[in-house]
Write a protein that binds this DNA or RNA. Structure first.
Lengths: 121, 121
DNA sequence: ACGAGATACATCGTATCACGAGGTATCTCG
DNA sequence: CGAGATACCTCGTGATACGATGTATCTCGT
């Protein structure tokens, strides 16, 4: 899978993973992994970024003798997911532009101002 | 619109813009602009990259006293679009993961190996 | 005739970012 | 006792989108 395609999904994916329940780094990766590969270094970078943007809050707690950092989504984080859903409509329009006419060539009326008078050599 | 979300679409968008007819930089931007903002510097960077990857071929021709660089997609470029369509299925799965349970909370049977016993403080 | 804006190309520097490589430490289980 | 899982972290690098900037010609209104 093209790495570039996943960008933009990563941040929102992490937010989605903690939307309905608090979680921690290791578990977030496991939860996301069926859908999207994400390395640990990437995840922790993202968590730092989301914390800096106040899209989630962090606290540390002991669990089984070890320290864990727990993450909880903020209202701002939930807003971010909602914005993503709006952006998705635009993304789908782009997708339709890319895949238009790739199966059958339906040559309709061509009324573009920047009309094509291409000279083939 | 989040810049990151567009990444991965950009290259394929340019290929899609020249898929059914040869084109040139300025026209490609105009054709794409209703769907996706792309600066000129970005476009020319992408065209260079696609040429290096042999996804399109380039030649120069005079038009109205000025030189234009024309671009034509290669079979490899068409393959790239087809691969994108396959990748899109994965992207949609990620989208469903992100938007799942954001409207109604349908708590079904939870049979995950990494089950959640989160302690809320 | 002249200037503004469109057309058409290009380069350079910067900021962002995903990720591999590497590190530390504890727990579990055979 | 050692391997693998759990759990966290940092640093360097390469890829890349884009603003700023530059060059040159054509078109069109006044």
């Amino acid at each position: 899978m093209d790495i570039q395609l996943k960008r933009g999904l990563l941040d929102v994916c992490v937010l989605a993973a903690i939307r309905n329940e608090d979680s921690y780094g290791y578990k977030i990766i496991k939860d996301i992994s069926p859908y999207l590969e994400m390395s640990e270094s990437t995840l922790y970078t993202i968590l730092k970024r989301l914390e800096a943007g106040k899209l989630l809050i962090v606290w540390t707690a002991e669990h089984g003798g070890r320290l864990r950092k727990y993450y909880r989504i903020t209202p701002g984080g939930i807003d971010r997911i909602e914005e993503f859903k709006d952006d998705w409509k635009e993304i789908e329009a782009i997708y339709r532009f890319i895949t238009r006419d790739t199966q059958k060539l339906t040559v309709g009326s061509d009324d573009e101002e920047l009309s094509t008078n291409m000279e083939r050599q």
